[in-house]
Design a protein around this nucleic acid. Structure first.
Length: 276
DNA sequence: CGAAAAACCTGGCAGC
DNA sequence: TGCTGCCAGGTTTTTC
C-alpha cells in the first residue's frame, strides 16, 4: 500500500506519538507470521531498549534503538497503529501481528496481506542492508546527471525504469503513473530512446510529486491509514491513477489503462504520446 | 546473463 | 445468497 510519501508520513507521526515513552517494555509477535519475523531471542533483545529515533530509508522504516536497528517494511497493507494504555488483549483486531509495549501505550502492527516484515539488525549491518538502493528524494537535485545516465542504461520502458528502486527510491505504482503524466511521457516509451532533457524532467516530476504528496499526508486510494488512523488527502490530486475512461484533467481525452509489469498503468493518450 | 513472470497473502467487489 | 475471477500503494524468487 505505501509508497515513499505514505511511509514518510508514518515515520513523522510515529516520532510525534512517542516523544516521552520510548522504552520498549515488551515486544512480541501475535497471530500469524509476516514475511520475515523476529526470533524469540530478538524479541527478548528489544526489551528495555530505548527508541532513539525513527527514520526512513526508501520505503523502509528504521527504528533506531540504543543497541540495534529494528527494520519495518509495510508491504502492501501494513500499518503501525497507536493504542493508549486502556488497550487490552480483547481489543486486538483481525490481522494484528506484532506488538510493542510502552509505559503509556502500544504500537500495534496490523497487516492483512502479510507482505510486510520486521528484521532486527546491528548498526554495523545497515549500510550493507540498504546497499543497492538508489537516491533519496533529497539527493536527486545534486545527482541529477548521474540519475539520468542510470535511467538511460535501463533496457526497459520508462515506467519500469522509474519504479526500479536501484535508481531513485520511493516511486511505486501510483506515483509512477502520475510522474509520467506530469512529464508528458508515455509509460511504454523506452528509457534509452528518451532524451536526457526528458529523463531529467521525469525525475524532477517524481521529486515534485513525492514532496507534494508528503505535504498532503500521502494518498489513501484503498485503505492506507497513518499511525493515527487518519487518511491522506493526495488521492484527491491524482491526475490519472484510477481514472480509466474519465476525461483527462488537461485535455479531456479519455484516460487509458494498460498493464505494465503486471501492474495497472494509467495515462492520457493525447498528453503522453509515445513519439514525443 | 538480464528481463519478465510468478510467488507471497487477504479482502472487496463485479458479474453470474 | 453464493460462488468465481479479478484487482489492490511491494519486493523477492523463479523462469526463460
Amino acid at each position: 500500500m505505501p509508497e515513499l510519501p505514505e511511509v514518510e508520513t508514518v515515520v513523522r507521526n510515529l516520532n510525534e506519538i512517542l516523544p516521552r515513552q520510548r522504552i520498549i517494555l515488551k515486544a512480541q509477535h501475535i497471530g500469524q507470521s509476516l514475511r520475515y519475523n523476529l526470533t524469540s531471542k530478538q524479541q527478548q533483545q528489544l526489551r528495555n531498549q530505548k527508541i532513539l529515533n525513527i527514520r526512513r530509508r526508501a520505503k523502509y522504516i528504521v527504528f533506531e534503538l540504543e543497541k540495534q536497528l529494528l527494520i519495518s517494511h509495510l508491504g502492501m497493507t501494513g500499518q503501525w497503529r497507536w493504542e493508549n494504555e486502556s488497550f487490552d488483549r480483547s481489543d486486538f483486531k483481525k490481522h494484528d501481528h506484532f506488538l510493542l509495549c510502552f509505559k503509556k501505550g502500544y504500537l500495534v502492527y496490523n497487516d492483512p496481506r502479510r507482505f510486510g516484515f520486521l528484521e532486527l539488525i546491528s548498526k554495523d549491518q545497515e549500510q550493507d542492508y540498504f546497499k543497492g538502493l538508489g537516491f533519496e528524494p533529497d539527493q536527486i537535485q545534486k545527482n541529477l546527471k548521474e540519475i539520468v545516465q542510470m535511467l538511460k542504461l535501463q533496457k526497459t520502458n520508462l515506467k519500469t525504469s522509474l519504479m526500479n528502486q536501484k535508481v531513485i527510491v520511493g516511486v511505486g505504482n501510483i506515483y509512477a503513473s502520475e510522474a509520467l503524466f506530469l512529464a508528458g511521457l508515455n509509460p511504454l516509451k523506452l528509457a534509452l530512446k528518451t532524451s536526457d532533457k526528458q529523463l531529467e524532467l521525469l525525475v524532477l516530476s517524481s521529486l515534485k510529486l513525492m514532496n507534494k504528496a508528503i505535504q498532503s499526508g500521502g494518498s489513501s486510494v484503498q485503505n492506507y491509514l497513518n499511525s493515527k488512523n487518519e487518511k491522506g488527502s493526495f488521492q484527491n490530486q491524482l491526475k490519472v491513477y484510477g481514472r480509466e475512461g474519465l476525461g483527462c484533467k488537461e485535455c479531456g481525452e479519455k484516460i487509458r489503462s494498460i498493464v505494465i509489469q503486471q501492474r495497472s498503468s494509467f495515462f492520457c493518450p493525447r498528453c503522453q504520446k509515445k513519439s514525443s
